[in-house]
Design a protein around this nucleic acid. Structure first.
Length: 799
RNA sequence: GCCAAAGUGGCGGAAUGGUAGACGCAUCAGACUCAAAAUCUGACGAGGGCAACUUCAUGAGGGUUCGAGUCCCUCCUUUGGUACCA
């Protein structure tokens, strides 16, 4: 078969017939299959794209034949750093580079034959699109879910540029390889933490794989505990409180010291009272220098400085305990201060050993001279006044009651998830709909003036002082205040790449709407998404961000569903032939376009789904792929076996029925590899018989069609069917009146002795008669103590 | 460290607690061919036996069960994710 020719032929036919366009409000049941839209990079599509899209492709092609009104859309997540860097290097406008890349990738995706609905194509860098990204930001701002605060960012002192986490991996600048430092900067934050509890509880009702749910739960990081006020004693008198957060309020009697983060405000407040202030400042400076890199490398060696001049008082027993500054306590979590119970916490234990603090056990059972005793389940309280003799759980409950009653503390829930830092010092991103006016302060650009577009720039060199390149475009920065009409300046930072992808699935439902992000009735028809397939790398970012935005839009009445994705499926990585991750430096990258040139798109599609379980990572193989090519060739030659029989041969019915149910079920559950092997087996069976009817051939091609649509369509036409497979109906099971035979294994003590062929659903007595008649098993049957009989499966003689 | 997933032939991988190794690759043999390729047929976990057959095999060790690759416990290894979270 001339793959190049027939693939082109059928792609043109489908396009002409608009075979894959989704119809708004159609009476058929809707089916929305979503894949993660690609970043249009200059390199073109990766083999991973082919795998990611092939699964949904197969599912959607089947669903269409099953009578669903299928939406399988695609678009471009086109803002981002690689394009900007390319623009800097080659002095090409990002807009132009993006358009070129999109054109190229589109051509490639079409060459694979994906049945995308191209009429709904979207592009996050299109002004008509990002107008609504800005609009959503405005709504978040109006509802008080946006705030500006100082935070640390990665900064390269040599390039004088702020870097993203991706650009500063290993603590080294991506461009010049010099050491990255932390720089304080004004950052826009979205209050995703306000949605933490709902993002967590919403997971319970979603059909996501467990590892995805667990990943999100872990990221949200809910912990329940208590806040407790310790007294601060300065110059011998109690004059202030120190609020701490703990999950182990049961151990309050075991507190032997306190620790505060180097940035804790109490330090500055009492600087005059702290006799070793210089030492504290020096330690703080040292801690600040620690970059992301240091924290990841994290030698767990505890460092810290004891504060001289201020002590804390345990509110329960009025005991004085020293306070330390140490960077193992973070200002960004809890209250930035902790009570330390070295007897029952590993970190506190380590710190106490190093700094010679007391270790006081309050739970019986451990040897606290050797290590912290952290078992919560066992153990009984000791040395703890009114808690003595209670279990840890009882003690926690009693302690919270006590704290609340006496006004020294309260129950408190904390989340590890941080608010979403939402700005980047970049050109190629959505501008904020924000201006700064001397008179009115921070002002939102009104909806009628959206979108705020990007100015044209000639040079895309990185700007200095860690500012966005946009800061240099004066005629753009200077504007009038929408409130008072006076002079104002635009926000020059742009939104992160996650912004545009946080709501794109909504836009597919109504991609050309100019008056709102999408018509509500269309969202009611299409939403929520039936299946969303994508990679594990998006579990804690994109998948949480987009759920957050959708939930927010639901709250303000824009979107009719609270959760956007009913079901999530995940894809396993395609590794290089050497078993390593594909990378340019290892030289093990497989270009899908090369494979298409050599084998054709259908073979590529078949092999990528056949090579392993879809969710598992698996190495690519340039030799194994030939098995899929041989299979397609065999299917083509199968036409020579077609006889003149009208209908389906009776002796073939059960084979085809078996294939129909297996392929259908396997596609639905993403077990594409076994669906394909089932078709291979069926082909082998047909070859062994040496004949099949025309109708059977078509049935086979229909089952093959979702995987290898070009070949299937071509062969269907060649054998003389006028109706295209793309317009046909998915095969149903045929009536089967034949007597089915099954094989029953006969075991003695669980070991296989023989295999009997009997009628399906044969009774125990009939089967045992055969067992008695078989010389290999009859002797065992006579002395059997027990006989286990499972219909159609097994007989086990226990002797 | 913690969380999750996974360890099955020479290789990629199949197996609702019920015949381990489906399907494919590679290899070997045969057919076709002047020959090669392609194709078709067959063999293909390891040991023992002329054979019918038989024993051992799913990372290691225990356990539950009539029966365990599958369930439980301990351990080892690999791969992801996450990280001084109080």
């Amino acid at each position: 078969m001339d793959y190049e020719k027939i693939e082109k032929k059928w792609q043109e036919i489908w396009e002409k017939e608009k075979a894959f366009e989704a119809v708004d409000f159609d009476k058929k049941p809707k089916y929305f299959g979503l894949v993660e839209f690609p970043y249009p990079s200059g390199v073109g599509i990766h083999i991973g794209h082919v795998k990611a899209y092939s699964s949904m492709e197969v599912l959607c092609r089947m669903k269409r034949l099953q009578g669903y009104n299928v939406m399988f859309p695609i678009g471009w997540d086109a803002f981002g750093l690689p394009t900007e860097n390319y623009a800097i290097k080659h002095n090409v406008a990002p807009r132009i580079a993006t358009d070129e890349n999109i054109k190229n990738i589109k051509k490639q995706l079409k060459a694979v034959g994906f049945s995308f609905d191209w009429s709904r194509e979207i592009d996050t860098t299109d002004e008509k699109y990002f107008k609504w990204t800005q609009w959503i930001f405005s709504k978040l701002y109006e509802k008080g879910l946006v705030y500006k605060s100082k935070a640390f960012v990665n900064y390269c002192p040599s390039c004088d540029v702020i870097l993203s986490n991706e650009e500063s991996q290993g603590g080294v600048c991506d461009r010049c390889s010099s050491q990255v430092v932390q720089k304080e900067k004004e950052v826009w934050f979205l209050k995703i933490r306000e949605y933490a509890d709902r993002l967590l509880s919403g997971l319970d009702h979603l059909d996501f794989p467990d590892r995805v749910k667990e990943g999100q739960r872990h990221w949200i990081g809910k912990s329940t505990g208590a806040e407790v006020d310790f007294d601060l004693k300065v110059d011998g008198c109690v004059c202030d409180k120190l609020k701490i957060y703990t999950t182990r309020c049961d151990t309050l009697f075991g507190v032997t010291f306190m620790v505060v983060a180097p940035e804790h405000p109490m330090l500055e407040k009492y600087r005059n009272k702290i006799s070793n202030w210089d030492e504290i400042v020096a330690y703080g400076e040292e801690a600040k220098k620690k970059t992301e890199f240091d924290r990841v490398q994290m030698n767990k060696d505890k460092t810290g400085v004891k504060i001289e001049g201020v002590v804390a008082v345990n509110p329960l027993n009025k005991k004085e305990v020293p306070i330390f500054v140490a960077d193992y306590v973070m200002m960004g979590y809890g209250t930035g201060a902790i009570m330390a119970v070295p007897a029952h916490d590993n970190r506190d234990f380590e710190f106490a050993k190093k700094f010679g603090c007391d270790i006081k056990p309050v739970i019986a059972g451990g040897d606290v001279d050797k290590e912290a005793y952290t078992d919560i389940a066992a153990g009984v309280m000791i040395n703890s006044d009114f808690l003595n003799g209670k279990t840890v759980k009882e003690a926690q409950k009693l302690m919270i009651e006590y704290l609340t009653k006496n006004g020294i503390g309260n129950a408190k829930t904390n989340f590890q998830m941080k608010d979403w830092a939402f700005n980047r010092q970049r050109y190629w991103g959505e501008p904020f709909p924000i201006v700064y006016c001397d008179k009115c302060g921070t002002v939102l650009v009104p909806e009628k003036d959206l979108p705020v577009t990007l100015p044209h720039m000639d040079k895309f060199k990185p700007s200095k002082n860690g500012e966005s390149p946009l800061a240099e475009v004066e005629e753009w920065v200077n504007c009038t205040c929408p409130k008072c009409g006076g002079k104002a300046k635009r926000e020059t930072d742009t939104m992160p790449q996650w912004a545009g992808s946080s709501w794109y699935f909504l836009r597919y439902m109504d991609p050309h709407n100019d008056s709102c992000l999408a018509d509500r009735s269309k969202m009611e028809y299409w939403g929520p998404i039936d299946v969303y397939n994508g990679g594990m790398e998006h579990v804690t970012r994109h998948l949480i961000y987009s759920r957050f935005w959708n939930m927010f839009l639901y709250d303000i009445g824009v979107v009719p569903f609270e959760e956007p994705y009913k079901k999530r499926t995940t894809i396993g990585l395609v590794l290089g032939e050497d078993g390593n991750k594909m990378s340019k430096s290892l030289g093990n990258v497989v270009d899908p376009m090369d494979i298409i040139k050599k084998f054709g798109a259908d073979v590529l599609r078949l092999y990528i789904l056949f090579m392993s379980d879809y969710e598992c990572p698996a190495p690519w193989s340039n030799t194994n792929i030939s098995g899929c090519k041989r299979f397609l060739d065999r299917v083509e030659r199968m036409a020579d076996l077609v006889d003149n029989f009208d209908g389906v041969h009776e002796e073939h019915i059960s084979k085809f029925n078996n294939a129909i149910s297996k392929v259908t079920a396997d596609i639905e559950s993403f077990k594409f590899n076994t669906a394909i092997s089932c078709l291979m087996s069926l082909a082998n069976d047909i070859y062994a018989d040496g004949y099949l009817s025309k109708k059977e051939y078509r049935l086979f091609l229909q089952l093959l069609y979702p995987f290898a649509p070009h070949s299937a369509e071509e062969l269907n036409e060649r054998v003389g069917f006028a109706e295209h497979l793309s317009k046909s109906c998915w095969p149903n099971l045929m009536e089967d009146n034949s007597v089915k035979m099954v094989k029953i294994a006969v075991q003695v003590n669980g070991k296989l002795r023989t295999v009997l062929t009997v009628q399906e659903n044969a009774g125990k007595d009939d089967v045992l008669k055969l067992v008695e008649g078989d010389e290999k098993t009859s002797a065992s049957l006579k002395i059997a103590k027990k006989i286990v009989f499972v219909p159609n499966k097994i007989v086990n003689l226990v002797v």
